[in-house]
Amino acid sequence: MVRGEFLTMLGPSGSGKTTCLMMLAGFEAATHGEILLNGRPINNVPPHKRGIGMVFQNYALFPHMTVAENLAFPLQVRRMGRAEAEEKVKRALSMVRLDSFGNRRPAQLSGGQQQRVAVARSLVFEPDLVLMDEPLGALDKNLREEMQFEIKHIHESLGVSVVYVTHDQSEALTMSNRIAVFDDGIIQQLASPPTLYERPENAFVAAFIGENNKLTGRITHVNGQSCTVDLDSGGTVQALAVNIGGIGERTTLSLRPERVLINPPADKYPNAFEAKVEELIYLGDHIRTRINFAGNDQFVVKVPNAQGHVVINEGGAVRVGWAMEDCRALDA
């Protein structure tokens, strides 16, 4: 991890991301392997000497202290002088725009304000690294989005490194420099958000990040970058060979709904099929279209609600097509 980076650990619950965070913080012992901070192994350093800030899922603000006392706590245990500590507390409060709330108790604050205090408290002693364990999980949607930007801005202005845990992929995509996708205790892919979305390396990542059309089949032919796949439901598809075995092996094809075109220009794409429209869902900016092609009726296409977009009717027949590069052949 690079200094100043915002790294997110993303994964379904039970995938080991919180355990991993607790190992970084020192609350769980790593069974093997080494944890390095600034090149120094910290496996045997107790949590209070690691100098890592942490924001907890339920904020863990001390209820018997005021906001200012909460912020002053890490400074007091470091035996910082009173005047200096007060100055830092004031600065931290103004950073999260809660200047006048110093004398309130945590219970007198709203969820978002408590969240900001928790962030301020984890940063007030100027750690190199801050860990955040699903800090926005308890907030409603609007507040969560607002706080995402706020945390991102604080991160950018302070240049502190952040390890962030969430199960919300849009949150991960919004905030991170890099995302580590966890499943079953293993990092499936560690990459920047665009790479993760556009070039997933295995079927789990493709399915977990964003919406995805999943087609299964068997490889019949490999030609350098591209391969030919016979679908289980019938039909043959040209796909980009990313993570496949040899000829005759099974593979999962991943295709983003927005990369599928309705009525594409003839002969432009190697993949073109006749399909039947099963269902239309109007979503404002786009129309979610569920179509049935070659016996696969869960195939979704996003038709942007742009000027002059194709008019389709439920039950009608359409042609769909997509580029070879947009259809990634991954592990089975």
Binding site: P47, H48, G51, M54, N58
Partner: peptide, 29 residues
């Protein structure tokens, strides 16, 4: 009292005893 309070105190730099006296005990009053 969730264990996260003690963890929070420890992550903020308090040793076991300080965390117990300053964070845990006041909440048990």
């Amino acid at each position: 009292i969730p264990p996260s309070y003690m963890r929070a105190a420890r992550s903020l730099g308090a040793n076991q005893l300080t965390a117990f006296v300053r964070v845990y005990m006041p909440q048990t009053m």
